[in-house]
Write a protein that binds this DNA or RNA. Structure first.
Length: 395
DNA sequence: AATTTAGGCAACCGCTCCTCT
DNA sequence: AAGAGGAGCGGTTGCCTAAAT
């Protein structure tokens, strides 16, 4: 709003950095920290704008940057998180602590995007391109449902936030929330546990939730059961490792209309006959901000993730769903997505990847996703989030 | 060997968000 | 509550290098 660009000053250098400039910047930051980026160049004796200095530091000079070729695991992480988050490079970068968002962005644009395209997958939607040719068959519908899952999750977070607010009005007597230490690394460490607890309490038809001790990772491993009302109950925290009482999130009053999951999210959370009171009302901006905080920290609520899996699994074949040791029955990571991707990745890459990607199941080397592949694709994305390293800054 | 083309990456630009006053 | 400044993010550009002709 009227503020002049930081680099507009005459005499400031642009373009590639010289080793001397790098040295000056490095030396200054090592001694003083960066402090105010705007003030840094003058103090460090650099003819650069602060923004340029920050960029140089974060993308190149920072000591904890890993440079060089991306590993197989890193590629998988990027692709799957991109499917979930879109072009939110900084969020993706939080899962690859030694890579910069810029590096990831470049790698995506120059390598991974092309590879997906070559496989017949739209790199934007992560959906088989063939879907657009025959959008009416059941399989395509399922894939279309999947493509909305990120939006779904987003809408859900908004709704949860609304529920928090509503529950504040309805109840003033919640038990203190116990938070396991792992969550402390989140930028908003208190949000999710409270969110879950209050969401559970506010859910229509759900009994008052006991205090919830949430460890996202453990909770994610919790089992599932189908409710007797035809809805679904996510049993949070009943895995063997959990010490806390079980919290039950019930959506039995509102079985999700999965067949139109993208639009359904709107209805479900906004305008449906929702007895849970998920009604759009005042304070949208506040809740948008709330949601963004949750999203930006990638602190997915357990319920959200499980709902997503629910959305993935349910419309296809509920009976075929496997639950193994409390995990969602996604196929093995390497057998599923990675094989599909890397085997299709052709030709020019296997030599430097170790070449262990062909599982010989016949699902490779062709365009488009099969039903199972689609399922695996998304389940693996969720598994990735689930299996994020515990020292990840976002979990 | 010279020229053209394509790929890869660092850096810039403009916008948005957040914080402070 | 509103405005200004700072920081961060994502998109894009432009340069450099390698490969192809």
């Amino acid at each position: 709003m009227g503020r002049s660009p930081c680099c507009e000053k005459v005499g400031l250098k642009k373009g590639p950095w010289t080793p001397e400039e790098d040295q000056k910047l490095l030396a200054y930051i090592e001694e003083h920290g960066h402090g105010s980026w705007r003030a840094l160049p003058a103090k460090a004796g650099l003819q650069r704008c602060g923004k340029s200095c920050r960029l140089r530091w974060t993308n190149y000079l920072r000591p904890d940057i890993k440079r060089g070729k991306f590993s197989l695991q890193e590629e998988q992480t990027i692709i799957q998180l991109h499917a979930l988050l879109g072009n939110r490079w900084s969020a993706i970068a939080t899962h690859l602590p030694k890579r910069t968002d810029n590096e990831i962005k470049n790698y995506w644009n120059t390598h991974l995007k092309k590879r997906l395209t070559k496989m017949g997958i739209d790199p934007v939607t992560h959906k088989p391109k063939s879907d657009t040719l025959s959008p009416v068959d059941g399989q395509s519908k399922a894939a279309a449902n999947l493509s909305h899952m990120a939006q779904w999750e987003s809408a859900r977070l908004e709704a949860e936030a609304r529920l928090v607010r509503e529950s504040r009005l309805k109840s003033t007597s919640f038990q203190p929330v116990q938070v396991q230490p792992q969550l402390g690394s989140s930028s908003s460490p208190d949000i999710v546990p409270q969110l879950l607890n209050k969401t559970a309490a506010a859910s229509a038809g759900a009994p008052p939730a006991p205090p919830l001790c949430l460890d996202v990772l453990k909770a994610w491993q919790g089992g599932w059961s189908k409710s007797t009302k035809g809805g679904f109950v996510a049993c949070v925290g009943n895995g063997p490792d959990l010490e806390s009482p079980t919290s039950t999130l019930s959506f039995s009053e509102n079985p999700l209309p999965i067949q139109n999951v993208g639009n359904a999210a709107v209805d479900y959370y906004g305008n449906n006959d929702n007895e849970g009171g998920m009604v759009k009302e005042e304070g949208e901006e506040e809740w948008k901000g709330f949601k963004d905080r949750v999203e930006s920290s990638m602190t997915f609520s357990t319920a959200s993730l499980q709902d997503v899996v629910f959305a993935v699994e349910t419309p296809w074949s509920p009976e075929s769903r496997k639950v193994e040791n409390g995990h969602v029955g996604a196929s093995n990571f390497m057998d599923g997505f990675a094989d599909l991707l890397l085997t299709n990745a052709d030709d020019h890459n296997e030599s430097d990847r170790g070449g262990d990607s062909d599982n010989g199941d016949g699902n490779v080397g062709r365009e488009g996703f099969s039903y199972e592949e689609n399922k695996n694709y998304w389940n693996n994305i969720l598994n990735l989030v689930n299996s994020s390293p515990s020292d990840s800054p976002v979990f």
